[in-house]
């Protein structure tokens, strides 16, 4: 027995989704203010806030004008996969692991396009979202495993890449089940409720991303990757 009605849940979920989408402004402003303190890696990571903001605007616009924003959401997911693979490529020490992730991302994205062309857009969307969750969680886990092997230099909470990885894992864990469902079979109300939960994960991710920008230093631990490693 629910204590709140479905309508109330939908309204709350919509509010949460909106809040999550607007909250990307916070890491964006922080990255502007701390631009001079950001390492090249963190500057690359800051591209995410523009990708996210642009996708939100484009998806909203497409929703009003074309009644479908799937293409923009898929572009966002693909862009996110490419961007985060590029970011982690610069911090992972093992060469074979770096290239393995590049290979996985490439094959995954191409397979996604194939699915979209041969099957249907809805399935393609589910595929891209699931791929994003799985691949980015794997990247984050690989980085955390690397951290556990390295001699500790400072507290983990001061490492921006650690914060990003934790954010990534929480986001993936909080969204992967919803993203792997076939959302086309659910009602609009159900989808909105599910995405309310997704929005909470997104808010946590944006908070950790903001913290990562706040803790970033020009010579931070995330910038020190040995050249060798196989």
């Amino acid at each position: 027995m629910l204590l709140v009605s479905t309508t109330q849940l939908v309204i709350a979920s919509e509010a949460l989704s909106l809040l999550m989408q607007v909250s990307i402004i916070v890491p964006m402003v922080v990255s502007w203010r701390r631009w001079s303190q950001l390492s090249p890696l963190m500057r690359l990571l800051s591209s995410y806030v523009y990708l996210s903001a642009l996708s939100v605007v484009a998806a909203r616009w497409a929703e009003w004008t074309h009644h479908s924003n799937l293409l923009y959401l898929m572009a966002f997911n693909a862009g996110k996969i490419i961007l985060f693979t590029a970011v982690y490529f610069q911090v992972l020490q093992l060469r074979w692991l770096r290239w393995l992730f590049v290979g996985l991302a490439t094959v995954g994205l191409l397979a996604g396009v194939y699915v979209g062309l041969r099957q249907e857009m809805g399935l393609m969307m589910t595929y891209f979202r699931t791929l994003q969750c799985g691949l980015l969680a794997a990247l984050a886990l690989a980085y955390l495993e690397q951290l556990s092997r390295e001699p500790p230099r400072e507290r983990l909470r001061s490492n921006p890449m650690f914060l990003l990885s934790v954010g990534q894992l929480i986001y993936s864990a909080g969204t992967v089940v919803f993203f792997s469902l076939d959302f086309t079979r659910a009602s609009v109300a159900q989808n909105k409720i599910y995405f309310g939960v997704v929005a909470i994960s997104g808010l946590i991710f944006n908070t950790l991303l903001t913290m990562a920008f706040l803790r970033a230093r020009p010579d931070g631990p995330e910038t020190q990757r040995p050249v060798t490693g196989s």
Binding site: P152, V166, L169, F178
Partner: peptide, 30 residues
């Protein structure tokens, strides 16, 4: 779905907590 998501989140939190404790103890040893 309602069961799997909190379980996954708890697993992630446990993993992060373990890693932080492990790293803190290594820092102290160092």
């Amino acid at each position: 779905v309602l069961l799997a998501t909190p379980t996954l989140l708890l697993l992630v939190l446990a993993l992060v907590g373990f890693l932080m404790r492990y790293q803190t103890s290594r820092l102290r040893q160092q």
